[in-house]
């Protein structure tokens, strides 16, 4: 038993090492400052990832602004407000079902809802708010823009965010809620002054992990028409965009070996970003998480 367990564990570790080593070998030579600061190009040697890098930042920021508060709010409602009822378990089942929906399916919903606004208003004749100089520039329907991309990803990560926040809230000892209630707190005062502060480090860890999921998603963005080759960084909510995983897909799918090299280089950048995310999560988990009860 132990032998087969060890063998299995070794396989898992070997796979990770093979993955990292093969990508490092392939990609390191293409990494350079100009790789980070140039736009895409027909020649692999001149291509860079500035546009997808900035695209990822924009899309993820929008996704975080939407998904984190909504996810926490939903978790608070389900854990702190909703009484045990059929409706509650239905919503709960629905959320776990949503977490199993393939991300590409969210892409289809987003295509119809965000990009085309259910066809209620034509994309050729959009409602316009603000001027293109402002970053708040907005048109409805959104079209395949940064805002559509961010909202798409927020659909994908929302169930993850909800479930993580719920687990965090559930880990707050019941005795703290009781203490607050017995002092005459209203439900929201219990949440705001006691439960939420106590759960916050764990919720933030969940939020960071959700964001690292969002930053690696390509399929739903591909469906809504995220572009594979973009030669500018986003300037407002309506800008065209691409993201790192889409750029990697584009380069990896080409037959030429030199494009595989820059794909690997882009992967290294992507993994470094993810690793940074994960380390922040670990730091938060270890430093901020004080014991809740002695």
């Amino acid at each position: 038993m132990l032998a087969s367990c060890l063998a299995a564990t070794t396989i898992a570790v070997l796979v990770l090492s093979a993955l990292l080593i093969s990508i490092a070998i392939e990609g390191t030579s293409a990494l350079s400052w100009s790789f980070l600061t140039s736009f895409a190009s027909r020649k692999a040697s001149q291509a860079g990832i500035l546009a997808p890098l900035m695209g990822s930042v924009w899309v993820c920021a929008i996704c975080a602004i939407v998904a984190i508060p909504v996810g926490i709010a939903t978790a608070i409602y389900l854990e702190e407000y909703a009484r045990r009822s059929r409706l509650k378990s239905l919503i709960q089942l629905n959320i776990s079902n949503l977490s199993g929906v393939p991300s590409i399916v969210y892409g289809i919903l987003a295509l119809v809802a965000f990009v085309r606004f259910f066809g209620i208003r034509s994309n050729d004749d959009p409602l316009t708010f603000g001027s293109p100089e402002s970053f708040m520039y907005l048109q409805i329907p959104f079209g395949p823009s940064v805002i559509a991309g961010g909202l798409t990803l927020s659909l994908v990560v929302l169930p993850i965010m909800i479930i993580a926040s719920q687990e965090a809230l559930r880990s707050v000892p019941q005795s703290l809620r009781q203490a607050a209630l017995a002092l005459g707190s209203t439900q929201w005062q219990v949440v705001w002054h006691v439960t939420l502060p106590a759960a916050l480090p764990t919720i933030m860890t969940g939020a960071i992990l959700s964001m690292s999921r969002a930053i690696g998603e390509a399929a739903p963005l591909l469906v809504i028409g995220g572009f594979l080759l973009v030669f500018q960084t986003p300037t407002n909510l309506m800008s065209d965009f691409t993201v790192l995983p889409l750029q990697i897909y584009n380069w990896a799918g080409r037959p030429q070996a030199e494009f595989h090299k820059i794909a690997a280089a882009a992967i290294i950048v992507q993994l470094v970003v993810l690793l940074a995310f994960n380390s922040i999560a670990i730091v938060i988990r270890q430093k901020l998480q004080r014991p809740l009860q002695s």
Binding site: L19, I215, G216, E217, A218, P245, H260, F277, N278
Partner: peptide, 19 residues
């Protein structure tokens, strides 16, 4: 190790399969 594996974007695994 597993957390790192879980965080790797799937497009990276696609690249790994291909190359």
């Amino acid at each position: 190790v597993l957390e790192v594996l879980a965080g790797v974007p799937t497009v990276v695994y696609g690249f790994f399969a291909l190359t």
